Computed example of a mutant assay.
Amino acid sequence: MERKRKKGGRRKLRLGAKLILALLIALILFGLAFYLTYDMLSVHNIRVEGLSGFSQEEVIALSGAKTGVHILFADTRGITAALEQSPFFKVNGIRREWPDTLVIDVLERQRAAGIAAQDSAVVIDKDGLVLEIVPLSACSVMTVKGVALLGYKIGQGIEAVSSLHAQILTELISAVENTGLDIAAIEMDNLLNIKLLTNDGITIAFGSSEAAQKKAELAKKVLDELASRGSTGGIINVSGVSDAIYTPDATPTPEPDAPDNSPDPSSPEPDNAQQSTPGAQ
């Protein structure tokens, strides 16, 4: 019995040793495979999707994403946090395209309007999020007058004195974007007499913000017709919603020409010389 127990113990030891050896061999093979495939599975390409204004290079630099790291160890949380420090970006997700590409999917917020605040323009997106603050003279999007602000901070929504003004502004921005109107400025001092000024010098008398989309569509049809004729200036009144009425700028009446009293060059000049009478001798 004692001999059998010793033999059984030796078998267990040999089995345990074999298992440990097999595990060590597996770990060595895994490490060797990881080492040999590290370069193949390293990030060699970084691509950003969803861009329209910023370049790939600008966004990759802002994200801090690096090539050369193993694709499994790419710091996706750090990349997301770095990009979302900018108000222009929201990261929808980051995915790996095997074997060596990291794809960053972003929402790029677009400049929609600049609210005049003294000598500055508070540039917002279509939802009223503040993207940047620039000198009013350097604002590259349509300016908005008549919206008083309590405060504003980059990366946050605007705080208007009147929440109604803020709501109507987002409605107008949406209508302008949906119809493709080329607007230089919006005047909202009187919410019952809103005016949109085009870059061609045409005023769109909007009236109230009621049926803003319909009014914008009516104005767009007239603007397209005027553009085909090369016409600029004037007023398009869409306040009635049902139709658009265009009134061109008044043509100044030319002043009558002053009478021309200069002599006619074709008329013979008068003979003012004194004639002499021959005298008798």
Rank of each mutant, 00 (worst) to 15 (best):
R109T: 12
Q156E: 15
G157E: 09
A112M: 13
I204T: 12
F89I: 10
K153S: 08
D189Q: 12
I133E: 02
I124T: 13
S86C: 07
S86A: 07
D189M: 07
E210G: 02
A121V: 13
V161A: 09
S209W: 12
D105M: 06
L181C: 08
I154L: 02
V161I: 15
D182N: 10
Q85E: 10
D105K: 04
T198V: 13
N92K: 11
G180C: 04
D119R: 09
T170R: 11
V123L: 04
S209T: 14
V91W: 06
A81G: 00
F206C: 05
S163M: 13
A166L: 05
I94Y: 00
G207M: 06
I158Q: 08
E187T: 13
N190F: 03
L197D: 05
A121R: 04
I168K: 10
D125G: 04
D189S: 10
S163V: 15
N190P: 01
A117M: 11
E97K: 03
S163C: 06
G151Q: 12
A205Y: 12
Q167R: 08
A116M: 11
R96S: 04
N190C: 03
V103F: 00
G201D: 12
A112I: 15
E132R: 04
I94D: 00
A148N: 14
I104A: 00
W98T: 12
F206L: 13
L150D: 15
S140L: 08
E108G: 00
E132G: 01
E108L: 01
H165M: 07
L169D: 14
T179Q: 10
V134H: 05
P135H: 02
N199W: 04
S163F: 11
R111Y: 04
D182I: 11
S140F: 02
G146P: 10
R109D: 04
N199Y: 06
V161H: 10
T179D: 02
N92C: 01
I104F: 01
V103D: 00
K90D: 13
A184G: 09
I183D: 05
V103A: 01
I204Q: 06
C139P: 09
P135R: 05
D127A: 07
I115C: 09
S208G: 10
G128I: 12
A211F: 05
E210Q: 07
V122T: 06
V130D: 10
E210N: 06
S209F: 08
I158F: 03
Q110A: 08
N193H: 03
S209E: 14
R109N: 07
R95T: 15
C139K: 12
N193E: 07
V130A: 10
T80H: 04
G155V: 08
L191P: 07
E171S: 02
T101D: 02
N178M: 05
S86T: 15
N92E: 10
K90H: 14
M142S: 09
I124E: 06
A175M: 12
T179M: 02
L83C: 00
I104T: 03
W98H: 02
L191V: 15
